[in-house]
Simulated assay, not measured.
Amino acid sequence: MILALSGVRKSYTTAEGLIEILKGVDLQVASGESVALTGESGSGKSTLLHLAACLDRADSGSIVMNGRDIRQLNENECAHYRRTQVGLVFQQFNLIPSLTVAANISFHAKLADRFDPAWEMELIGKLGLRDYISRYPEQLSGGQQQRVAIGRTLAARPPLILADEPTGNLDEQTGDRVLDLMVSLSRTARSALLLVTHSARLAGGLDRIVVLRGGKIVE
């Protein structure tokens, strides 16, 4: 298993008091596997992704990535973990406005010291971006920008990809096409994919669906 969560709990303090979002989550994701994480709004799906990305800390339990419990990492180690072990894709494209498409795609791979020009060009071709490599984000459509964001993530061949409603800002047809590409290319890269979605239709295109309900995973 690339990622294994066991007994993960997370609470937040609000004006109404302490609210427990995750109440003992157990979840495993294998290399090359795509898993859809579904559940009602506010069920903690994004919280779970943030914990797996080392963007937030669980209250208890273990989050083991490639044999190491990331709850034990300090801030510098978390930053290195995100550079080298995890790829993040969100609704917001988060592209760098001053960089071209080609430079945006290679950015993460260079940070991770995994830049591979041949793999980048393969990605650019499969993502349908060959005619746009010299353009800047503002010159692209939403679908094109999201494809660049996916290419940036996959260029570094991260062991784990965490995606939070990555097609939420796209129309249905474009979203379907982008998701199909993400799943196909993550398999090619042998990256595990954990994707949050509200759409049962989109979830059906992945290898497995898990539901977050009552603070726990329901397979």
Score class of each variant (00 low, 15 high):
192 A>D: 02
87 G>V: 15
130 R>A: 14
194 L>R: 12
166 P>W: 13
48 L>G: 09
100 T>A: 05
164 D>R: 09
45 K>V: 08
2 I>T: 15
67 G>W: 12
58 A>L: 04
145 Q>V: 03
197 T>M: 09
153 T>D: 03
179 L>A: 09
24 G>S: 01
3 L>R: 09
138 E>F: 07
209 I>R: 14
13 T>A: 14
87 G>N: 08
213 R>S: 15
160 L>N: 04
195 L>I: 13
30 A>E: 15
164 D>V: 10
117 P>K: 01
195 L>W: 14
105 I>C: 11
8 V>E: 12
151 G>L: 14
126 K>Y: 07
194 L>C: 11
106 S>H: 03
181 L>G: 03
217 I>M: 02
108 H>C: 06
63 I>F: 01
2 I>R: 15
170 L>S: 11
34 S>C: 05
112 A>H: 14
7 G>I: 00
118 A>M: 04
123 L>C: 05
210 V>C: 06
60 S>M: 13
214 G>D: 00
120 E>A: 14
219 E>F: 05
188 T>R: 15
63 I>T: 00
119 W>S: 00
165 E>T: 09
88 L>D: 08
203 A>T: 11
161 I>K: 12
128 G>T: 13
159 P>V: 10
150 I>T: 13
177 R>Q: 12
199 S>C: 09
67 G>M: 13
151 G>D: 07
3 L>E: 10
83 R>P: 00
104 N>K: 02
114 R>H: 04
36 A>F: 00
190 R>P: 02
117 P>A: 09
34 S>F: 06
99 L>P: 08
109 A>Y: 03
26 D>I: 01
114 R>Q: 11
8 V>A: 11
132 Y>R: 14
119 W>F: 01
27 L>C: 08
15 A>I: 03
147 R>N: 07
185 L>P: 00
14 T>R: 05
46 S>F: 04
92 Q>F: 13
194 L>P: 07
78 C>A: 15
165 E>M: 10
151 G>E: 11
37 L>I: 10
148 V>W: 07
86 V>T: 11
122 E>C: 08
126 K>H: 03
200 A>P: 00
79 A>R: 00
128 G>A: 11
16 E>R: 09
19 I>D: 03
177 R>L: 06
213 R>L: 08
148 V>Q: 09
109 A>Q: 07
209 I>E: 00
200 A>C: 01
73 L>I: 10
194 L>I: 14
137 P>R: 04
44 G>F: 02
194 L>M: 14
79 A>Q: 00
86 V>P: 06
80 H>F: 08
156 A>Q: 12
35 V>L: 07
41 S>P: 10
132 Y>L: 13
55 L>V: 05
219 E>Y: 01
189 A>H: 03
178 V>Q: 04
48 L>D: 04
147 R>T: 01
196 V>A: 13
158 P>F: 02
202 L>A: 10
97 P>T: 14
72 Q>K: 09
77 E>V: 02
190 R>W: 06
49 L>R: 05
195 L>P: 10
91 Q>K: 11
79 A>G: 00
29 V>E: 04
30 A>W: 02
187 R>E: 10
158 P>L: 02
56 D>A: 06
186 S>L: 08
80 H>A: 13
209 I>H: 11
121 M>C: 03
131 D>A: 15
53 A>L: 11
151 G>V: 10
153 T>Y: 04
77 E>I: 09
185 L>E: 14
188 T>D: 15
40 E>M: 11
217 I>S: 01
